[in-house]
Design a protein around this nucleic acid. Structure first.
Length: 422
RNA sequence: GGAAGGGUGGCAGAGUGGUCGAAUGCGCACGCCUGGAAAGCGUGUGUGGGGAAACUCACCGCGGGUUCGAAUCCCGCCCCUUCCGCCA
């Protein structure tokens, strides 16, 4: 949520920065400004009447205490009633309207975010490693089918399309990866491990900005008004909702494994590319709560922590920065990490590391005391460390041996219990 | 599913119709004390809206009602806790 004061005082700047995302939101901003002006007018008049009423009511109290007649003043106060009711109703309504409008405005891109229309304009910041020279190249779906690692047909039988069931060594590999990733981030990178509920209230989704705008992407349990979390970002960041942190509490660093549930409504090609896009996938997420001063630097280390995963696994990857036209709704700056998948001849996004500034913190009322004892909104960040399914794809396709088996990177051996599959 | 209790400031917790934005304690900040610290003592310390400011208004889970006046009384809703039932 943007600061209404910023919108009020620098509306042109806000409009142009929003426009850099690719769609003109001037009309929405103007609607907010109009609503804000009207709201304040109602509130000011209401407050004037409230002040009068308060003063007169005290006089009544005084008169009654002395046993004197107060009926004239009582009548006067009573005459405020209708006007105050109307103003109160208007103010409440306008307040709600304004909040709704604000919740639907995306975050302002950081001044450092490259300007561009779409993904084609995302600059590549760096590459690590090199594409492996393979004797044999095979798609992960073929590898997994041949080695019995997972099965889409079985998953469809029990859950429909867009799901997978991992089987045998395939299931063990997924479980090994979860442990490897959580251990890495908690033991080596100092994040605190969280295992949250996978089901969340709507307020939590509002807090991290999946709602109200992206309701159609969420799995919803209608009878209970609960949602399946689309990412651990939601339950984990919301752990700190409505909190007032001391400076010494920050930064907070959480790492959490969860499955992620996404309807992927309108996504082309769901279910046609194996493990790459599914309704449910596993992910280890990194979340940071920090100060405005530190958040830029924390994004760099967060990204480095995610990159470390691929470095340890010896997988070739590149880091790109999302441009203004491609950046997520709540983010002000985002780095994507893309791993090379030889069987796809493509880079796959395995991590998206974002600095949300105070955008989410405003929505969830997450504040901290600064050095002067003043309350300020925190900055929130998160990034995948990393998504499992695509990492799994890259591992199978990169580790493929001439004999059809898959050689695993050394750090996984002790988790998986073997150096290869098949 | 049934029953009961409860939602007040950073936290704990008083407060059943008017000077209550709210006792007290803890925490925190500053000061005194100390070689330094602890303890002790003193002072201060909620959030948000409007306003250039003085100041003013709102906020005791949320919404409505009663009343000249509501943290306090009434109604509805949300949430939490405990017990019973069912169940991993």
């Amino acid at each position: 949520m943007l600061d209404i004061r910023l919108i009020r005082e620098q509306s042109d700047d806000v409009k142009s920065r929003l426009a850099s995302r690719g769609s003109d939101l001037s009309a929405e901003v103007d609607a907010i400004l109009a609503c804000d002006a009207e709201r304040r007018r109602s509130e000011t008049e209401l407050q004037q009447l409230q002040a009068d009423r308060k003063r007169l009511s005290k006089e009544i109290g005084g008169l009654r205490a002395k046993g004197q007649d107060s009926s004239a003043i009582e009548a006067e106060v009573k005459s405020f009633g209708d006007r105050m009711d109307a103003l109160n109703r208007a103010a409440t309504e306008l307040d709600e309207k304004q909040r709704t409008l604000l919740l639907n405005i995306p975050n302002l891109p950081s001044p450092t975010t490259p300007v561009g229309a779409d993904a084609a304009a995302n600059p590549v910041l760096r590459e690590w490693g090199a594409k492996p020279a393979l004797v044999r190249t095979e798609d992960h779906v073929a590898i997994g089918g041949r080695l019995g690692l997972f099965n889409f047909e079985l998953a469809a039988k029990i859950s429909g399309s867009g799901f997978v069931v991992y089987t045998g060594a395939g299931a063990r590999l997924e479980r090994s990866l979860i442990n490897f990733l959580v251990d890495l981030h908690t033991i080596e990178h100092g994040y605190r491990e969280i295992l949250p509920p996978f089901v969340v209230r709507s307020e939590s989704l509002v807090g991290t900005a999946q709602l109200p705008k992206f309701a159609d992407q969420q799995y919803r349990c209608a009878d209970d008004e609960l949602y399946l979390a689309p990412t651990a970002e939601v339950p984990v960041t919301n752990l700190e909702r409505d909190e007032l942190k001391a400076l010494s509490d920050l930064p907070i660093k959480y790492a959490a494994y969860t499955p992620c549930f996404r309807r992927e409504a309108g996504s082309a090609g769901l279910g046609t590319r194996g493990l790459i896009r599914m309704h449910q996938f596993d992910k280890v997420e990194l979340v940071k709560i920090t100060t405005p001063e530190d958040s830029d630097a924390e994004l760099e280390t967060l990204t480095a922590n995610a990159e470390r995963v691929l470095q340890l696994l010896g997988l070739h990857y590149r880091v790109i920065e999302l441009c203004t036209g491609d950046i997520g709704f709540g983010s002000q700056k985002t780095y994507d990490i893309e791993v090379w998948a030889p069987g796809q001849q493509a880079y796959l996004e395995v991590s998206s590391c974002s600095n949300f500034g105070d955008y989410q913190a405003r929505r969830m009322n997450l504040r901290h005391k600064d050095a002067e004892g003043k309350n300020r909104f925190c900055h929130t960040l998160n990034g995948s460390g990393t998504a499992l399914a695509r990492l799994y794809v890259a591992l199978l396709e990169s580790g493929l041996q001439p004999d059809g088996s898959v050689l695993l990177p050394e750090p996984l051996h002790r988790y998986f219990g073997s150096d290869r599959i098949g």
